[in-house]
Design a protein around this nucleic acid. Structure first.
Lengths: 293, 293
DNA sequence: AACCCACTAAAACTTGTGTTTCAATTCCCG
DNA sequence: CGGGAATTGAAACACAAGTTTTAGTGGGTT
């Protein structure tokens, strides 16, 4: 007992162990480290062979990696982690889920709500509408994203994804500018993406009405309760935002926007720009500049 | 090989299968059934041998039990169950939801991905950490939200919710300002909420390092692969952002932020809730907002 | 009581796993 | 440009996992 072996002394989690040595390990093991950090439950559920395949490494690399983490054995590592899990380390709650087991766990209640919010949003959407919007994003002469209050963030998010294929996409309103300075020139060849979730200020409806009168097609991302303002839109994307929570849940909104943008990028590749039209390649390309800091 | 086993026909859940045959199985397999019904995750995590020991049965009993459940193999059973869990409710995956004609169910695939992304984020978080952050939001002298690129939107969203209980909450960086002009005065009594999702510019890490040196506690919302920058944070909130999609999915991030903000409001108690009510009332009164438009 | 049948688990068997070895390769550093 | 250290995955290896066989037990029936 006088000697303290470093092994059992600190009940360090794998994440901690990985981060401690991350800088000093070779590439083949680093891909494993990345995979484990991103999907920790894989270690519990998969065999070492599967883990190697998932991470894109060899079985030998897995063994070396395990040793470097100061585990004697792949299996011992699994046991170790499982112990940590059963003693309450929340990182791996994933595997032990049994819905009603949570009891007073507010987090899991929250998860349930957001899951059903997300599901209800997506299930009741028409894929063709979303694809039509994506197509329009690619083909329109100009694109602008509009949103107020909370919705502004989502409009801005949308615009940020779109500029990867259309660097001219605008975000509105701009501080200190009136809307019409930027939208004044818009016409039937353009596209307005309006995000109007609950707590819409009247400006939004007015702007949409004006744009409709100018013949501008409008894609309108909103909540289910919107009524009158949907009349101005060519495409309506109603999202479920209401939970029993204090604040509205926007998981459905962000998910839909992601979907539209993804489709738009794919479509833009297909329409013959010199961009890669292979989705996988694009993912690879986007992933290569990926700082681990 | 010419014969097609009934293997791939029904994607029934394991619980269903067990209950279907429960009455008609012998004792040694029934103890296994009981164990599995009570701790379903054992099947995923344990080996067949371990499962036998836990339930108090023999290895042979496990094999017979698995066969009786119409799985060809113990390992195949594990794979089957794992697949069902990782996508959430297996109802969505291959239940043949062809209500949307057109053959391509890209939307439902997208839903699956975002559902599991959301689940993996929430389930692997520590509720105590989130509550500690919420508490700090209420008690800190000053609060600032920091984020670059995509993360900026989430920092801004966060700040927008927080100002309902803390009107002094800041969003950073501000255009045309240097960070230190706003953060220079920060110290141990304050709180910095940093959002740093993939594609982090180096500025973020530098800012966090400086703040840590100044003794400022940092709540850091990031993705699972972040390594070095987590060293500067007092609380780390790792989110699952990676799907097989082109763009990262932020459903988990937005959900967590919502949770933290909600808890902060609840914790802020009467004053906070009062303020929120006042705000709503005032808004209603001025009819500044019309939810129906 | 004798027989039969279902059931059980120990032990042999087989397959697939994780580990180790090793030659080829890359990357430094002189 | 070399030589050497480090890194890598394919293949060989040892071993443990799951399956099958088998011998034994207990309960029920005629």
């Amino acid at each position: 007992m006088s000697e303290k072996p470093p092994k059992d002394a600190p009940p360090r989690s794998i994440e901690r162990r990985i981060k401690a040595i991350y800088e000093s390990i070779p590439a083949s093991e680093r891909v494993l480290a990345d995979r484990v950090l991103e999907y920790p439950s894989d270690v519990l559920m998969c065999s070492a062979t599967e883990l190697a395949e998932l991470a894109g490494a060899s079985k030998a690399a897995v063994t070396r990696f395990v040793k470097r983490l100061e585990y004697s054995d792949f299996r011992e590592m699994q046991r170790e982690i499982r112990r940590a899990q059963s003693t309450g380390d929340p990182i791996f709650l994933n595997a032990g889920r049994s819905q009603r087991e949570g009891g007073s766990n507010a987090l899991l209640v929250h998860l349930d709500q957001d899951m059903s919010c997300l599901r209800q949003t997506i299930e009741q959407l028409d894929q063709e509408v979303l694809i039509a919007i994506a197509r329009r994003i690619v083909s329109a002469r100009r694109v602008a994203c509009l949103g107020y209050r909370n919705s502004y963030f989502f409009a801005a998010y949308m615009r940020r994804q779109i500029i990867q294929i259309r660097p001219d996409a605008m975000i509105l309103p701009l501080p200190g500018q009136t809307l019409m300075e930027d939208l004044g020139q818009f016409g039937p060849d353009d596209l307005l993406i309006a995000v109007g979730l609950r707590r819409r200020p009247p400006e939004l409806g007015r702007a949409m009405q004006l744009m409709q009168q100018a013949g501008v097609p409008i894609a309108y991302v909103t909540d289910r309760r919107a009524i009158t303002s949907t009349k101005f839109a060519k495409w309506v994307v109603p999202c479920q935002v209401r939970g029993t929570s204090l604040f509205d849940s926007y998981v459905g909104v962000i998910s839909v926007l992601n979907f539209i943008c993804t489709r738009a990028v794919v479509l833009s590749g297909a329409t013959g720009r010199k961009r890669l039209n292979d989705l996988e390649e694009m993912i690879e390309l986007l992933s290569e500049l990926d700082p681990k800091n």
